[in-house]
Design a protein around this nucleic acid. Structure first.
Lengths: 146, 146
DNA sequence: TTCCTTGCAAACGATTTGCATTGGA
DNA sequence: TCCAATGCAAATCGTTTGCAAGGAA
């Protein structure tokens, strides 16, 4: 999805939710679109050279989450990170560094994803659990911390 | 693993780390051994009828984590939950209710686990990531919230 | 003009820590 | 006995919220 397309989709979705696509919210969407992985409010704040106050970032993220544009991720201690929702970024998984806590996106092959989906379907069926989503994360040490 | 065996293993491990197996720590280990899923410090505190102060629970959990007896889980917003490490509880996965935030353990069949392990190995190899562990979580709605 | 949104500061909830006291090996 | 462990209260850190000012339809 190109930047322009993304912008259009987001704009439309926010309009459906009757909230405005303001410059502050645009900053968040743009930063997340550029990102290689989920970002915390604090990380976003640092990235935009503090041009947007933290509290506004929290509010923007809350609005965007409500509209289904971003989703939260809780894989690391103490911070919530956000990324664009799957319908905007595609389905993917995470590599989580146990040493530095960084989170990196990773796409897996169609074949692997298909196998995984089948596996998860089986498992969900065994438990009385209406499956909505699966999360596969690989924990280890990233290149820097190896 | 029986309660007595567990106790022995934990006792030994703590001794190796040169820390004591005190009554407060015993309370935590016992509660987690009984639990169907990871528990937060607050949940543990409620469970023991506040016999152990919150700050002590946090400290006990930190010590136990250091010794590799418990591991943290960050799947839900705002709280860290702990469970006994795999070498004490066995490998398993989680069902996370997107509505009420509860986390439930689930074991999957040998066949499924083997397939999953192979999948993860492939994926880890593709990325330059020294894989240590994999986490598969299934998000949906639990029986109560369905 | 009318609301939504923003910025700042105060409020909050989860977690951590300093310090004096207690307790286990 | 002696140092680790505990309890309490105060301090931190991430996150949320009240309120007055700013901005877009």
């Amino acid at each position: 999805m190109t930047g322009r397309e993304l912008d259009g989709e987001v704009s439309q979705r926010l309009a459906d939710h009757e909230v405005r696509y303001t410059s502050g919210r645009r900053v968040v969407v743009t930063a997340l679109a550029r990102s290689e992985g989920p970002k915390s409010p604090a990380e976003l704040h640092a990235e935009v050279a503090s041009a947007v106050p933290l509290s506004s970032l929290y509010r923007s993220l809350a609005v965007l989450e409500n509209a289904g544009i971003v989703v939260p991720h809780f894989g690391a201690k103490g911070v919530t990170r956000y990324e664009l929702a799957e319908w905007l970024r595609g389905h993917h998984h995470h590599l989580i560094c146990l040493n530095c806590g960084s989170v990196e996106d990773i796409a897996i092959s169609q074949t692997h994803e298909a196998k995984l989906a089948e596996l998860v379907k089986d498992i969900g069926a065994a438990a009385s659990f209406a499956e909505v989503n699966h999360v596969l994360e690989i924990e280890g040490r990233c290149a820097k911390c190896a």
